[in-house]
């Protein structure tokens, strides 16, 4: 599957789109369960949020922001490719998507300070 040579930006964009989607889909149930803790009271939710202050969890949150932005931009690219008239592979859109997600990740880091 990987040994093939023909790897081009469109392929990497598709793989990044799929893997980010995969991670986000698996994260969602956990996200929902944590918010659901509010049913047991504000203090329970608060303790979960304070637990998430650990560096490793914060790092995961940062990664999720980047992945969500990436999945959004690459998804918009697919919608453009499929529903607007185009010729060629529109590789500039991939670069744009990567840039936006890096930007979102950086903003998140800055705001943490």
């Amino acid at each position: 599957m990987i040994q093939r040579w023909r790897r081009h930006p469109g392929y990497w964009a598709a793989i990044a789109h799929r893997l980010s989607g995969l991670v986000l889909a698996l994260f969602l149930p956990a996200h929902f369960l944590v918010l659901g803790l509010a049913l047991e009271g504000e203090i329970v939710l608060e303790s979960a949020i304070r637990w998430a202050d650990q560096p490793l969890v914060k790092f995961s949150e940062w990664a999720l922001i980047v992945l969500l932005t990436l999945h959004l931009s690459l998804g918009l690219r697919i919608l453009i490719l499929e529903f607007l008239p185009w010729r060629g592979s529109r590789q500039a859109l991939i670069g744009f998507g990567a840039l936006v997600s890096i930007l979102a990740g950086s903003v998140f880091l800055l705001k943490l300070e």
Binding site: F32, G36, A38, L39
Partner: peptide, 14 residues
């Protein structure tokens, strides 16, 4: 189900 429960928890819970 989990999503609806989460929305209810933060909007209506308590």
């Amino acid at each position: 189900w989990l999503g609806a429960r989460a929305v209810w928890a933060v909007v209506g819970g308590g």
